[in-house]
Design a protein around this nucleic acid. Structure first.
Lengths: 259, 259
DNA sequence: CGATGGCTTGAGAGGCTTCAATGCCGGTGG
DNA sequence: CCACCGGCATTGAAGCCTCTCAAGCCATCG
């Protein structure tokens, strides 16, 4: 409820998918936090470590990293402000992939103990968290398709679409700009390409007039044309889901808004 | 508890990760089921449909399919008998990817209503289901790395490793064989390759003596050599997790085995 | 002002695809 | 009983997309 509460963007994001009561919102906003600054290119979750907390991105950008055979890295998920980056660690504390800040990033660490508490006390929150994990998996699934079945140009365009859509929470104008201050090398790690080829691909997109990139900001002259080119269908991001309650109704009994 | 209960393999699988009480096991085995035969290459979950049930693979093989731009398909997950293929639909009923039988497969459909009931009644089961979703996501994450960052040979070998490991529930001998009756075209859809190149790659693996493939059965002369070649580390499959209870302890109060 | 990190561009190589044709096998119907 | 057919496996040749290696440029920063 405090505007500058670091948990507020997170609450806003999950609330559009799973309707919560005022009490439940308070519970989330009241979660104990440990704020932390992470500079670019440094891990804040190490591979193989056992976690007793989950991380929420407050400001900046973070990526989930996996390791290939000869040390080459692959980003499997991009996390924007408001994302609980490793909520899943609550259920499976062994970190099977690392988390790294892509830019200077401020994160918040939330102890599993506290999360467990509100999850037990408010089943609707448990459901909501569970749903977030499921949707993260759906996004990851699309990530696979993007990387495997599209060529470099479409791939990059699709990434732009996804990121823009998530930043703007689904309310798209026909023409706008957004910040994506990542290096081409980091883009390459996301797209399964090399930095050199990302460069060429990017310039090709610019030459086609699909985007206009300058210093970490991406301008989109025509959202419709980009979507068309990128084969982008936002359904998998699950933004359009009408807020509804699956288990909360039963679990909490009455006092809950329906559908 | 009935040996031929179609839910028994599923219970066995999840029980090695999340310890359950006798009562909870009974609750799972008592779930209402609708058995169904699905012949190869036919969808049993259509893209874009809204689901009121989840599907459990009893016998055969199923894949989760995504669609690329020009209709080319990509398999994002392979489901073996005992897998609850779309447990996630309980939280997010809109099917964002299709499910298809790869061979003649018998599945069981379990109404969401019934799942919701036991999830509400037994929080430990909710936790357990949630964990399954999280682990599915971890497997998917490794799938990304496998496809993006490894060449065709290593890719195929890694798929063999993963499948073998899951079939045998992690207890590997040095030398064994297992069934994988899928066509090379289906393998291609899993690996992000073409059927032609899968063929060549497979023959290269055979020539190297890493595997021996005949008519849908894969023989592995040396598990260690294959693992080495495939860059396979089973940690992401979360088989070795000691059974422990995160929220069940609190949620159910006493009467629960710890750690 | 040198050093560093990121961006840009070129040339050559390689892995994978595409297109095409052949062979094998099991099923089906005359 | 056999010819036919369709799905699958196999192999070849050519081409393309992307990688690798290499060099030069620009901005920022100590």
């Amino acid at each position: 409820v405090h505007a500058q509460n670091p948990l507020a963007p997170f609450l806003q994001k999950i609330h559009r998918r799973s309707l919560l009561t005022g009490e439940e919102k308070e519970a989330i906003l009241g979660l104990p936090v440990r704020i932390e600054q992470v500079s670019a290119h440094t891990d804040f979750v190490r591979l193989g470590s056992s976690l007793d907390h989950s991380c929420l991105i407050v400001h900046g950008l973070a990526g989930r990293f996996g390791q290939g055979p000869d040390g080459n890295r692959q980003i499997t998920a991009l996390h924007l402000p408001g994302d609980m980056a490793d909520l899943h660690s609550l259920l499976s504390p062994l970190a099977t992939s690392a988390m790294q800040a892509l830019t200077t990033t401020t994160i918040v660490r939330i102890p599993h103990v506290a999360l467990r508490e509100i999850v037990v006390r408010y089943p609707a929150i448990a459901e909501c968290f569970w749903r977030e994990c499921v949707i993260d998996a759906a996004v990851l699934s699309e990530w696979v398709i993007n990387i495997c079945r599209r060529n470099a140009g479409v791939r990059l365009a699709h990434l732009y679409c996804e990121t823009a859509y998530r930043y703007r929470l689904g309310s798209m104008a026909e023409q706008f700009a957004f910040e994506l201050p990542v290096t081409q090398h980091q883009l390459a790690d996301m797209l399964g390409l090399t930095a050199v080829h990302v460069n060429r691909t990017m310039r090709a997109l610019v030459a086609r007039g699909l985007v206009h990139v300058t210093r970490g900001t991406v301008e989109i002259p025509s959202w419709r044309r980009l979507v068309d080119f990128a084969d982008f269908d936002p359904a998998y991001l699950h933004f359009e889901v009408a807020p509804r309650v699956a288990m909360g109704v039963v679990m909490n009994g009455a006092g809950r808004v329906q559908l």
